[in-house]
Simulated scan of single mutants.
Amino acid sequence: MDENVSLAQLARRLEDVVGELRGLPVDVERLEDGELVRQQILRAAGSARELRAMHPVGSPDTGRREQRSRRDVLDALQGGLAMRTIVHSGVLDDPRKAARLKELHAAGDLHRIIDEPIQQLLVFDRSVAFVRITPVAHSPGALLIRQQSLISILIDLFEQTWARAREVTAPVYRLSPREREVLALIAEGRSNGAIARALSITEAAVGKHVAGVFAKLELSASEDDNRRVLAVLAYLRGEVTLAHLAW
């Protein structure tokens, strides 16, 4: 199904549900306090069997908050919670967050990466959902949703986004959108100067992106290997994997 068509259908479903609920009690609670939101999330996780999550790029967590969040996720995984998480590709630009993503993915919280903007979302089973009140990253408030018709729409949104997102198991998928653009041009045989002109950026910026590509593809400097060639090979292997997944 065409992506625009499916999203349009999703929007119409949301309009229909809103129309049906107009004038009726709606089971949506507004939580303003960040600690209360966390307590409600932990309560939902304690009895849930499955979690669907989406996380946009935001300002860096404080060390204390990030460590607490990491412990919460690991505890939930050990308790048997099945987790799937979609994160924005900009997260990969932060080495600390990229390492945390890799750790949680290996622990069982299956991650996929997407370039398009996404909203903060948690859906536990088909019973309760949390949506950030405002799109501002790390704003404390959230909407706690128990209305089944709304949860069904949020699950559809997650599943369609999950289908478009990329796997994180192949190293090439760790690259940021700009790094993938640079790597695609390297695959065409272009020099750093030619890449800079094509992307309207400085040659120094291209060099920085190329270094990022080498680091994320784990291509260390060697007298015997041409890292640009190895990076292109990784890029081509990534394209084959994407084609296979699309089938």
Rank of each mutant, 00 (worst) to 15 (best):
E66N: 11
L101T: 09
I86P: 04
A44F: 02
D33Y: 00
D27G: 02
S89H: 05
G90M: 01
D93C: 11
A48G: 02
L51Y: 02
P95M: 04
R52C: 06
V57N: 09
D27A: 08
G46A: 05
S47I: 11
M54I: 03
L51K: 00
G63Q: 08
G58N: 05
L42G: 05
S59V: 14
L81S: 00
R96Q: 06
R68D: 15
S59A: 15
S89R: 04
R30A: 15
A99I: 03
D27C: 07
L74I: 01
P60V: 05
I86S: 07
R52D: 08
K97I: 07
L101V: 13
E66P: 09
L31N: 07
E32G: 08
L77M: 00
M83W: 04
K97P: 07
V57I: 11
E35N: 11
L101K: 01
L101D: 13
L101S: 06
R64Y: 08
I41W: 07
I41G: 05
Q39R: 09
Q78D: 11
R70W: 03
G46N: 01
L77N: 05
A82S: 13
E32C: 11
G90T: 04
S89F: 05
R30N: 14
A76N: 03
E35W: 10
V87L: 12
P56D: 09
S89L: 05
Q78C: 12
E29K: 10
R30H: 14
D27P: 04
E50T: 15
P95N: 02
R71Y: 12
G80K: 01
Q78V: 09
A76G: 02
R65D: 15
G90F: 01
R70I: 07
K97A: 09
